[in-house]
């Protein structure tokens, strides 16, 4: 069983991006379990002074959740043309210590939803750049769900068949990355 940790960059109840991850869970290939991260809100601002032998509990939980996953699926909204601060902050924690961090070499994929017309495409692009700089193995492509208010069916599925197919393909690429063995 491959485990994909799903991280929503939006904290609010009823978030479109959290719904997008829940929809992704239903589209995951057989043998793939998608688990939603809890506790992003509790992660404090990155502070190197706190990043010693015993970092804050919320950070330890965050790092353990990522380290326990074969891959990570991020859903990001777009705030002021970029990634929400709390999500970026979490990645900053997850990127250290540099060569042994939770994100180091970890396969990752990015999707996004927005109420606007573009589906958080700039935030998604920036998030892939951030993840790659952190050393994650961010796969190409995403899913951009625009006009997110009407993008889901009442039972939480993606209303647009094309979105569902993109999500299915992306999850397939993500899991394939997670199955590539590290070189000897």
């Amino acid at each position: 069983m491959a485990r994909v940790l799903a991280v929503s960059g939006s904290l609010r109840r009823g978030s479109h991006n959290t719904r997008l991850l829940e929809a992704a869970s239903a589209l995951a290939p057989q043998g793939v379990e998608v688990v939603l991260l809890e506790g992003l809100r509790d992660v404090p601002p990155y502070d190197e002074d706190l990043d010693g032998d015993l970092p804050p509990a919320a950070v330890r939980a965050l790092r353990a959740a990522v380290e326990g996953a074969d891959a990570v699926l991020f859903a990001t909204p777009e705030y002021n043309a970029s990634v929400p601060g709390q999500l970026k902050n979490a990645i900053d924690w997850l990127s250290r210590p540099r060569l042994t961090s939770a994100l180091w070499g970890r396969p990752a994929a990015v999707v996004g939803a927005s109420t606007g017309r573009f589906g958080a495409i700039w935030a998604q692009e920036e998030l892939r750049k951030i993840l790659r700089t952190a050393g994650a193995r961010a796969v190409d492509g995403g899913v951009a769900v625009a006009a997110a208010g009407g993008a889901f069916t009442p039972d939480g599925r993606l209303a647009d068949h094309a979105h569902a197919e993109e999500m299915r393909a992306l999850l397939g690429r993500l899991v394939a990355e997670a199955r590539v063995p590290a070189a000897a």
């Binding site: 540099r98 060569l99 180091w104 070499g105 700089t133 050393g135």
Partner: peptide, 20 residues
């Protein structure tokens, strides 16, 4: 150290999969 890490990451040498 940040530059070193980026050079070893999949964006560049991908040393995890290609250590040699």
């Amino acid at each position: 150290e940040n530059l070193t890490a980026h050079l070893q990451a999949p964006d560049f040498l991908d040393t995890q999969r290609h250590p040699t």
